[in-house]
Amino acid sequence: MTLPATPLQSGASGSALAVAGTFASLALFLSLTAHIAARNVLGDVPVKYAFVVGPIPAAIAVVVTTFELNSYLGVFVAIILDGVAVKYLYGQSNRLSGYITFIHVIVSIIIGTVLYALLALLSTAPV
C-alpha cells in the first residue's frame, strides 16, 4: 500500500505586497539564523555577511512556491547556494563552510519549530 506524499508547501496566492512581505520576513529570519550559525562555529563575525546569506534561500523559496516547482529540489538548491554564499563571504574551507551551512539548517529548523509551536499555542488561548 502506497501512502500519498504531502507537499512541503502549497501554491502561492496573494498580492505582490504579501509576497514581498513574506520574502522580507523569511530573509530576516534566515539572516538571523545564519548569523547565529556562523557565530557558533567561527566566533565573532560581522553581521553584515548574514544579511547577504539570508535572502538567498528566501528568494529560492519564493520562486519555487510562485512557479510551483518541486519543493525538494528547492530545498536542495537553497542549501547548496547557502553553502556557496557562506564559503564566499566568510572565506572558509569547503568542509568548514559545509559545517556552518549544516548548523544554519539545524538552527533554522529549531527556531522555526519553536516559533510555530508558540504561534499555535497562542492561537488556542481564550479571548
Rank of each mutant, 00 (worst) to 15 (best):
A37L: 05
A37I: 01
A37S: 10
A37K: 02
A38Y: 01
R39T: 14
V41H: 07
L42M: 12
G43F: 10
D44Q: 14
P46G: 07
P46Y: 01
V47R: 11
V47C: 07
K48E: 14
K48S: 15
Y49V: 03
Y49G: 15
Y49M: 07
A50L: 02
A50V: 00
A50S: 12
V53Q: 02
V53C: 03
P55G: 00
P55Y: 01
P55C: 00
I56F: 03
P57H: 03
P57Y: 01
A59Y: 01
A59I: 02
A61Q: 06
A61E: 06
A61P: 06
V62Q: 09
V62C: 11
V62W: 06
V63E: 10
V64A: 05
T66F: 10
T66D: 09
T66K: 08
T66E: 09
F67M: 11
E68A: 13
E68M: 11
L69R: 02
L69G: 06
N70M: 06
S71A: 13
Y72Q: 07
Y72M: 08
L73K: 06
G74F: 01
G74T: 00
G74Y: 01
G74V: 00
V75N: 06
V75G: 04
V75Y: 06
V75M: 04
V75P: 08
F76Y: 08
F76A: 15
F76E: 10
V77D: 05
V77G: 03
A78S: 10
I79K: 08
L81D: 05
L81G: 07
D82R: 08
D82W: 07
D82M: 12
D82P: 07
G83F: 02
V84S: 11
V84W: 08
A85K: 00
A85F: 00
V86M: 07
K87P: 14
Y88M: 14
Y88D: 13
L89G: 06
L89F: 08
Y90L: 03
G91I: 01
N94M: 12
N94H: 12
R95C: 11
R95Q: 14
S97G: 14
S97I: 00
S97W: 04
G98W: 02
G98Y: 03
Y99P: 12
I100S: 09
I100C: 07
T101I: 02
F102R: 12
F102W: 11
I103G: 10
I103T: 15
I103F: 08
V105S: 11
V105K: 09
V105L: 14
V105E: 07
I106V: 15
V107H: 04
S108M: 03
S108Y: 02
I109Q: 13
I109D: 12
I109S: 15
I110H: 11
I111K: 04
G112Y: 02
